[in-house]
Design a protein around this nucleic acid. Structure first.
Lengths: 168, 168
DNA sequence: CACAATACGTCAGCCTTGTTGACATTCCAA
DNA sequence: TTGGAATGTCAACAAGGCTGACGTATTGTG
């Protein structure tokens, strides 16, 4: 498998055949399943799911983010998000602080316990990612990210870059 | 294999930092959203969803596949799959043929209409993939696939390779 | 042949996670 | 003061997962 990329010799653009594209599509499908498997396993003991993981991830990533900010990031309605946040707050994982400048806003933070769960989840996911990165090597990783970024919707890419620009 | 954005040498393995891994994780999240956006849009007019798309894809990919084969591929229960298949059959998109060697088996095929929808869906998805591939270039595409393959569970990788070996 | 196992369909009920719609509250800003 | 923004919440619903249980052909095996 994984026949070399055939750096456009003779017939050129061989990597754009329908067959190559289809393989990419199927690779995304199967890889995403692996990508979510570990956190899913961890959370199923806790009466939580992928939605909670995503919220925890982005609250950790942008401490103090507001509800509407998180809504836009996750691409869900406030009702859907609210249900998840309520569970996280009830479980003592997330803390809400009323905005100081604008007191309508709710700023979201992880509690100590929430941060601990975040670490557990992201350690599992990072471990898989690290193994994949190590197997594939730095050049492959650069390509991986390039293709993923090119695959995003414009809105998502902006959000992704806004995040990426922050911590890194 | 020695051009691409060199992984800024020096301290080595810089591509394995937590920050790099986190970026990869977020890239997967946002890219997968784009990846599924086009088919989702097409199907929402038809009272169908992602589950139907996945079934159609793999039936197209492996014509004559059995129900249990498809179950394993999709990673869902027969009850869940059955609901989807019933809808597809009722809509005249999928045809069922009783197995000749083993008449307990049901072999699944797309009808003409089903094949037409499959083309519409995969054209949309391939178009996005093609644009991403073109933007990123062949070296990046090879890396993309390498990382995705390394990220899969062993089972998924076997299924992926079995598919890939077929039509490839 | 009798019986176990396989492949499949189906009913019933449950869960998560998404949706719309409607309404209340609080607060900023013009 | 008033309109609109940000948020919370209730209700109802749908898609698409799940488990458990049962039924029915069909096939393989002792």
């Amino acid at each position: 498998m994984a026949e070399a990329p055939a750096p456009q010799g003779g017939s050129g653009l061989l990597f754009l055949t329908d067959e190559q594209l289809r393989k990419g599509i199927e690779a995304m499908f199967f890889a995403y399943r692996g990508f979510t498997a570990d956190p899913d396993r961890i959370l199923e003991n806790r009466d939580m799911g992928r939605a909670h993981h995503r919220a925890i991830h982005f609250i950790h990533r942008s401490p103090g983010t507001t509800v509407s900010n998180l809504m836009a990031l996750l691409g869900v309605t406030k009702q859907s998000l609210n249900r998840v946040l309520r569970a996280l707050i009830a479980a003592g994982l997330v803390e809400v602080r009323v905005g100081r400048r604008d007191r309508r806003e709710r700023h979201l933070h992880l509690t100590e316990e929430g941060a601990a769960l975040e670490r557990e989840l992201s350690n599992a996911q990072r471990e898989r990612m690290r193994a994949a990165y190590r197997t594939a090597g730095p050049v492959a990783v650069a390509g991986f990210r390039q293709v993923l970024e090119a695959m995003m919707d414009d809105d998502s890419r902006r959000q992704y870059e806004a995040l990426a620009g922050r911590g890194g």
